[in-house]
Design a protein around this nucleic acid. Structure first.
Lengths: 180, 180
DNA sequence: CGCTGGATGTTGAACTGTCAACTATCCGCC
DNA sequence: GGCGGATAGTTGACAGTTCAACATCCAGCG
């Protein structure tokens, strides 16, 4: 007896095949992207995304909260990450004149340089492992499907957690650890 | 100037839209699945997969290396994970009589119970966040695309890393088309 | 003004995963 | 039979993440 036999509303055979393929592909893909990035720049994908997002912002700086929202991470995680990127000299913090609670994260020239040198290999890895192995139609379809999933999830509990970490306190009482 | 402008062979506009939708969807989806699982059973998805895989094996036990290959993790990670699952009383280690280097991981009754209680909510979360928001054709297409990506990645460096540790994976990969 | 609730951001502890050794065993071969 | 290399698995130090608690500040309201 396996646990896959006991659940009342388990997946159909085809659904299981799709599901299994999906999680395996995601796991291997993200591992490969991180491995490649780590190997030629010492960044993981989360840190890389932080730097990219900063590089696209006016003045190469963004408020911490907004940066967290853009990169889909919690403020706590971002705070730790920025601390490490700051140690490495790739990012610096600046205080916000209009709101003394606030802080900007800003890309340094060294950070931009690291990003530029990491970008080529990263793009090649993405091409090699995603775009080159799929047909143009499959790429389009994957984009569409991903957008549907993303938009559905944005309305769900995870996105709400990332967006409003504080208000989880009431819910946490009844609902135990809402923002895992 | 942002880094997305400087790379010689960056992605086309449509590719970038697809790419960003994909990574955001993956990030939100895996976060949601982990959150749900953690919330109602204290397991993350990796640990859940270990228990599921054990539950499907003869005698509810598998050699460590084979388990690592089946769950697409490194032996080191699996070793740590099994240590934690063992502390919790959900898995136990057994020595292998035919190879004194070897070890089995075996599911305990308590582990099976945890798995059974976690399965319902997990399946519902997968349905809610994946199958319910996509059309039947999209599910099929996502399955096909995922299989292509997975198979391409299996030949790549990451899979070789995982596999350098275990050669007998081809057979394993074929007979398990089922079950989360 | 001063109080209160909400928002911003940081911190430290505990947990999880990674990487590079390390031990122990097995196997092939002379 | 024993040497050398491969294989199985574990370990410890370290990096990254989560969670709850915290300090600080803003904004509305009496």
């Amino acid at each position: 007896m396996s646990v896959t036999d006991i659940s009342p509303r388990w997946l159909s055979a085809e659904e299981q095949v799709s599901w299994r393929a999906f999680i395996d592909a995601v796991r291997l893909f993200t591992a490969e992207i991180d491995r490649e990035l780590q190997h030629d720049s010492g960044l993981n994908h989360a840190y890389y995304q932080i730097l990219v997002t900063l590089s696209e912002a006016p003045d190469h700086q963004i408020r911490m909260s907004e940066l967290a929202a853009l990169t889909l991470t919690s403020r706590s995680r971002l705070s730790h990450a920025v601390a490490r990127l700051e140690e490495a000299g790739w990012v610096e913090r600046r205080s916000c004149p209009s709101d003394k609670r606030g802080a900007f994260a800003a890309l340094t020239p060294a950070g931009l340089a690291v990003l530029e040198s990491a970008a080529r290999g990263h793009v090649e890895a993405v091409r090699r492992n995603l775009f080159d192995v799929l047909s143009a139609e499959q790429v389009t379809e994957l984009g569409r499907i991903s957008a549907v999933l993303r938009d559905a999830l944005r309305a769900g509990p995870v996105a709400r957690c990332l967006k409003a970490e504080q208000e989880a306190e009431e819910d946490a009482a009844e609902n135990n650890g809402a923002c895992a």
